[in-house]
């Protein structure tokens, strides 16, 4: 099945972890039947938003093929990523799809100079042969993130700030000229005063360099600020996916509504009024039959506890909620 139109197609992927021994162990579905596509015509920033334990990091690692799928398939420009076996194919894939990690202080070995990673990337992907030309490649990459080789050369990670390190991390990822970046919580460890500069950098990369970005975050405010589309994840499921203005401004799924309401706002007079229901025991939600949110949902119905809701297509987005079953018969899946 070849689909050349799409940059990335993620087709009904599922990841089940087995925890514990043979007899006493349990199975945990970290990612459940997730489906989405990213077009190659226009670069976009696609946000995966969710709380801890929602499976967003697992999903990122699946797309990067760091861990094996349980079932489903992932196509990058028509090539099945899950069949990559040898190093050559792996290198070709990594050249196109690069990650950016959460903690800039952990991204680089504290005992090594940060520029060694930039040079290694340039040489290993054959972008530069060696010597002078490598300096040029590395400098270009650093300049595209607002730094220069002069500032970074010979520096150890502890000599740079979190914001600078995260820029270096982006610069490194850009050296093989990828078309997709997967950034897992790239600003959560960066200081508040520097955070927006990194977020703006992603926006700029999309607009000027045409790089698509999967932005993984729990922070809905920055998600709204930079992304084109967003998927809200809950316990391995996409509960709502669509254009960010739609999903966050007029959320349909009860979980999205509560999530959005709970984001504190840095303005006066917007304090929370009603009290919130929290899950006492986390493991129960994963094992729950039917909708994972049924235990906390204010508009819960009987069916929610029995049956997993389908994805309903309405108002430019998909919503995985029984509330919309009656109104709209045109369900997909």
């Amino acid at each position: 099945m070849v689909n050349n139109e799409k940059l990335l197609s993620v087709k009904d992927i599922t990841k089940v972890f087995s925890i514990g021994g043979l007899l006493t162990g349990t199975r945990l579905t970290a990612v459940n039947e997730v489906y989405f596509e990213m077009g190659s015509a226009n670069p976009e920033i696609f946000t995966l938003a969710g709380e801890s334990g929602s499976g967003k990091t697992t999903l990122a690692r699946l797309i990067l093929h760091d861990i094996e799928l349980t079932h489903g398939s992932i196509f990058y420009r028509g090539t099945d990523v899950t069949t990559i076996r040898n190093r050559k194919e792996r290198m070709r894939f990594m050249e196109r799809v690069q990650p950016i990690f959460q903690n800039p202080f952990e991204t680089f070995n504290p005992l090594k100079r940060v520029d060694t990673y930039l040079y290694a990337t340039a040489v290993n992907y054959g972008i530069a042969k060696s010597g002078e030309s490598t300096d040029g490649v590395v400098d270009d990459a650093l300049r595209s993130v607002g730094l220069s080789l002069q500032e970074v050369r010979g520096r150890y990670p502890h000599e740079l700030s979190g914001g600078q390190l995260q820029r270096v991390s982006v610069a490194r990822a850009l050296i093989p000229r990828p078309s997709l970046l997967i950034a897992d919580e790239p600003v959560s460890m960066v200081d508040a005063s520097l955070r927006m500069s990194i977020v703006n950098l992603f926006k700029e990369l999309k607009e000027k360099s045409g790089v698509s970005i999967i932005y993984i975050t729990h922070d809905l405010a920055t998600a709204y600020y930079i992304s084109d589309r967003i998927a809200i994840m809950l316990r391995g499921n996409f509960v709502e996916m669509g254009p960010v203005e739609k999903v966050l401004s007029e959320p349909l799924h009860p979980y999205t509504k509560i999530l959005k309401e709970s984001v504190p706002k840095p303005v006066l007079g917007e304090k929370w009024k009603d009290k919130i229901e929290l899950s006492t025991l986390e493991a129960k939600e994963f094992a729950r039959v039917g909708c994972k949110f049924a235990g906390r949902c204010p508009s819960v119905m009987d069916i929610c506890k029995k049956e997993d809701p389908k994805n309903f297509l309405l108002d430019e987005r998909t919503v995985k909620c029984h509330l919309y079953a009656k109104q709209f018969k045109n369900s997909i899946l």
Partner: peptide, 14 residues
């Protein structure tokens, strides 16, 4: 399991 190992992997190191 530390992130810098993944950085090294994605830098194309063997």
């Amino acid at each position: 399991e530390r992130e810098f190992t993944r950085t090294a992997v994605y830098s194309g190191m063997k």
